[in-house]
Design a protein around this nucleic acid. Structure first.
Lengths: 191, 191, 191, 191
DNA sequence: TATGAATGAGGATTCATTCAT
DNA sequence: AATGAATGAATCCTCATTCAT
C-alpha cells in the first residue's frame, strides 16, 4: 500500500530539525565564529534563506541548539527528577555517564564547554542554562549532607568542578585519558 | 644622526609589550574571533599598521601571547626545574598557586582555557604548548610514584584534570566558589 | 515560490557578464594592479561582495577574463579549425584582422599585451593561454612549409613576432601608425 | 700606500646609485606595482628612509630609472650621433644589438616594455622618453629614403614595429626563439 | 515553505611615506 | 647622510542577512 505524499513528507526530518542537526556538527567542528551560515545550510541540505524562516539569526540558532543540548544531556545524566533525593546508585550513574557521554562525542561537548569560555558566546546562552542547572546542584548538596559530609555545599562544588575537569580532559585527549580507572577513583571518593 | 641600536631595541621592546598587554585584555574580554586588530591597536595606543611590524598576523599574535602566558604561569607555578623531583612542598605550592593565580586574574585564564576548546583556535597554538607542558606532567608522575601510588600516571592524569576543573570553576564563578576550603581538600588528597 | 532553475541561471549569466564587461574596461584603463575591485563593481553596477559570488578572487577574475578574450580573438582571427591547413586566404585574413581588431579596441589589446610583460600578472594566466595558442602556431608552421619556406618554424616565429610588433605599435599610437600600408607589406611578405 | 678613508668612500657606489641598481632588479623581477620600497631598500643595503632623500617617491624613482635605462640603451644601440646619416653598417649594427641586448637581459627589457603598456605607469615616464626617441626615428627614415624606398616613413614605422615585436618575443621566450636566424632575415630585409 | 542572488558593513593586511633622532 | 619605528589610507575579501520570486 503506497504511502501518500503527505505521509512521505512527515517521515522526513522537518527542515528545522535538519538545521539543528547540521548546526551542531558544524559548530562543534569549526567553533561558533568560524562556522558560516552557508556551511550549515549546505550540510542541512537546504538554502541559506530558509534558515531564516526558522531562526531569526545565527545567534538564535546557537541559543536554541544549546538549550536543546542541555535538555538532552540532563535527560541522559539524570533520568531522575532532581526534586527527589539522589541515591548512591544515582551518583554512581552520574559519574559513569558523565565520563562515557563525553567519550562518545567529544566534539559536541567541546562545543558545549567552549560556550562557557567565550564571553560573547556565553552571553547568548547564559540565562536559560543557569536556571536549568540549579536543581541538580541542590540535589547533589542534599546527597552529600545525607552522606554525613560536614560541609556538603563545598563538597558539591568540589565534586562538580572535578567532574568538569575530568570531562574537559576526556574531550581534549579522549585517546590517552585513562577514563575507566579515573571513574573508579571518582566513585570511591564521591559515591 | 640615527638612533643607536640600543635605542631602537628599547623602542621595539616597549611597543611590542604594549601590544601584548593590550591583546591579552582584549582577547580575554571578547574572545579571539570577536577581537579586532583595530581594537587591540587602539587599546595599545598605537596604529593598526604597527602591529604588523611585530606580529605577522593576528594568529601569530595569539600564538606568541599564549606561549608567553604559559611561560609566565609555569614560572609562577613551579620555580623549580621540572627535571628535579617534586617535593611535597612543591605540590602543595602547586595547588595553592594554581587556585590563587586564577582568582587573581580570571580573565586571563578564561582566555587560556577557551583556547583549548575552540578547535580552530587551538590549532594555532597546539604544538608549542604541548611541548612545554610535558616535562611538568612527567615530574608529577614521578612524584606520585615516589609517594607509593600504585598507578602514578593515572594519578597524575587525574590530578591535572581535577586542577583544571577547579580552575575552571574559579574562573566562571570566582565570587561564590569556596576556593580556600577546596584547596584544603586537594592538599589532603594529593600532597 | 522560488525562482526556477532557468531563472537563476539567467540571473547568474547576466551578472557574471556585467562583471566581465566592467573588468575588461577597468583593467584595460588602469592596469591590473591599479584596478580596484570596488571600481570594477561600481562600473558593473553591482556590489563588491557579489563579485566574489562569481570569481573567487581578483586574480581568478583576470584569469577568466583573459581566457575569454583569447577565445573570442581566436574566433575572430580564425574561424577555421587550426587542425585544418591554412590557405593563403586564411593568412591574408589573419593579417588584416590582426591589425583591424587592434585598431578597433586598442585598450583591450593593451591589457592583453601588458599581461605578458608583467611577470607577476603573467603568472596568473600563463598555463591556460599557452595551451590555447599552440595549435595556431602549428598550423602556421604547416602553412609556411607548404609554401616552400626552407625553415618554416623559424618563419612562423618570425611572423608571429612581427605581427605582435605591429599590433603593439597600433595600440600605442593608433592615430599615426600607417596601418593600411603596413598591412600590404605584410601580405606581400608572408602570404 | 693606504688609502685615506675619503678615498675608500668614493670607491663605493654612491647610495643613490645603489638604489637605482637595486630598483632595476626588483622592478624587473616583480613588476612596478608589486615591488615594495622596503624590498628595494633592502636589496640596496640601505634604509627605507634614505631612499626618500634621493627620490621624492616611488614614482620618481621609476621615472629616473627609466630615463637612465633609455640613455644607456641608446648609447649601446647607436653610438652614432642621430643627427648624422645612418650607414648600412649602422643599421646592421642596430639590428644585431637590438636582439643581442634583449637576450642578455630579458628581465630589464621586460620592465622597459611593460612601462609602455601600463597606462598608469607609462604616464609617469612618457614625456621624457618620447623626446629622446624622436631623432632616431628621423635618422632611420632618412636612411630608408636614401636607400630608395618609395615610402620611407612607412618603412621606418614598419621597421621599428618589427624590431619591437622581435624584442618582445626574445623577452618572453629567450630560450627557444630562433634569434640568430631571425637576425639574418631582418638584415636581408631592412639593411 | 523555499530558493539563491544580492547587499553592505566590517575586518585583516599591506605599504608608501613621514618623523624623531 | 642615515636609521627604522610609526602612521593611516587603501584594498581585498568574508559573511550574516535581506529580497524578489
Amino acid at each position: 500500500m503506497p504511502r501518500t505524499k503527505k505521509q512521505f513528507e512527515d517521515m522526513r526530518k522537518s527542515s528545522k530539525q535538519k538545521i539543528l542537526d547540521a548546526a551542531i556538527v558544524v559548530f562543534a567542528k569549526e567553533g561558533y565564529h568560524s562556522s558560516t551560515v552557508s556551511a550549515i545550510a549546505k550540510k542541512a541540505g537546504i538554502s541559506q534563506g530558509l534558515m531564516y524562516n526558522y531562526f531569526k539569526s545565527k545567534e538564535k540558532l546557537l541559543n536554541e541548539l544549546m538549550i536543546g543540548m542541555m535538555e538532552s544531556f540532563m535527560n541522559d545524566f539524570m533520568p531522575i527528577d532532581p526534586k527527589q533525593k539522589f541515591s548512591r546508585k544515582d551518583v554512581v550513574n552520574f559519574i559513569n555517564l558523565g565520563v562515557d557521554l563525553v567519550l562518545e562525542d567529544p566534539k559536541y561537548w567541546k562545543l558545549y564547554f567552549s560556550v562557557f569560555l567565550q564571553p560573547d558566546v556565553f552571553a547568548i546562552v547564559m540565562d536559560k542554562i543557569m536556571e536549568m542547572v540549579q536543581p541538580y546542584f541542590d540535589a547533589l548538596a542534599a546527597y552529600f549532607k545525607e552522606k554525613g559530609e560536614k560541609d556538603p555545599v563545598v563538597m558539591m562544588r568540589y565534586f562538580s568542578a572535578v567532574m568538569d575537569g575530568i570531562q574537559l580532559h576526556c574531550m581534549i585527549d579522549p585517546k590517552t585519558f585513562p577514563a575507566e580507572k579515573v571513574k573508579k577513583i571518582l566513585i570511591k571518593q564521591f559515591a
